[in-house]
Design a protein around this nucleic acid. Sequence first.
RNA 1: UCCUCCUUAGCUCAGUUGGUUAGAGCACCUGACUGUUAAUCAGGGGGUCUUAGGUUCAAGUCCUAAAGGAGGAG
Length: 376
Amino acid sequence: MEFKIEKKATSSQARAGEITTDHGKITTPIFMPVGTAATVKGVFHRDLINEVKADIILGNTYHLYLRPGLDILHEAGGLHKFSSWDKPILTDSGGFQVFSLAEQRKITEEGCRFSSHIDGSKHMFTPENVIDTQRIIGADIMMAFDECPPGTSERSYASKSLDLTHRWLERCFQQYHKTEPLYGYYQSLFPIVQGCVYDDLRAKSANFVKQFDADGYAIGGLAVGEPAEEMYAMIEVVNAILPEDKPRYLMGVGTPINILEGIDRGVDMFDCVMPTRNGRNGMLFTWNGVINIRNNKWAHDFSPIDENSDCFVDRTYSKAYLRHLAISNEMLAAQIASIHNLAFYLQLVREARVHILDNTFKEWKENLIAILGKRL
RNA sequence: UCCUCCUUAGCUCAGUUGGUUAGAGCACCUGACUGUUAAUCAGGGGGUCUUAGGUUCAAGUCCUAAAGGAGGAG
């Protein structure tokens, strides 16, 4: 994998670049739609490519391991072939699920024991088998197995957890170097910086992960309940330490404003369920602000969903129509909202890239943030 | 004409032997959602309990009549 920075902004840490993988190029900054269970919920690949213009999507190790299972994924020749997606894929390691399925987990030095939310069966994730699993899935970018402690964690717990995540990271890389890709194309492994909201732990973690000479570096454990300002402060601490010439991935973030603030602080890659999940629940992100399409106020508004978007759902459907579909629980509402929101997120990062390249990012960002935060 | 049974929120219905400010689901209105266990979750508004009398310390609950509805007998 290759990363080339085309332009660094002058009054900002923002960068415009390009990642090259065996499944194609990714222009940065980039937003990656989340496709947990081998599908970006409700969106055809055709629309992801032509309308959303996604360069890369996510899959999830935890979910894919449980269903369809490794034998089927292996037999299919990996997730790309299984799902007929031939652009890049990044898989999360299941570390976040260790955190979000807190009631059923048992974390030990060895790894994490958990029971399936599907059938209650018992399983164990270790740094080693999580790498093996991601080899079978065949992600272009694999993620290290980490623990993602709650944003409200005490320092003592955050510190203990961080040390465990670091020991797991060493084992992830050992397994990574001991194994080969199964399907003939290269796979990267990104380490993950943790440390909750503690500057020194974040710095320690950034310095630790740096030694692994990875193709890219991730910042995890943010946007998990802490104030946005604390998240931004942590990004600054970490990005001051991470290598400049490698992509930086802020995991699970976030709102359009979070993304602009992240780009401003030198983040290159983002993913978040927000455009799809919130879209299914009636929330639309537009260039004029945020809409709850279920609100009564849109019932008679026959204007386009977003007149500043060139995505086909915006050219085709009105707010009043989409509201009707959403209120009626029609599945098309979820599809339209998901495509619209994803297209908006991708337009947002492409637009950011343009403004980085022509050196107008900072003022563009400041003006836009005031608009994007509005509730319409 | 007679007999029986219904009538409680916009809709469909709960409501114990009469006993606090009458509930639910759906609908409506509004929130939440950040490496997806989520087409999910939470909150809110809304009722002269068909009407008129009566019994009782107390009536959605009991009695009488009327109105509207369902079924049955002629």
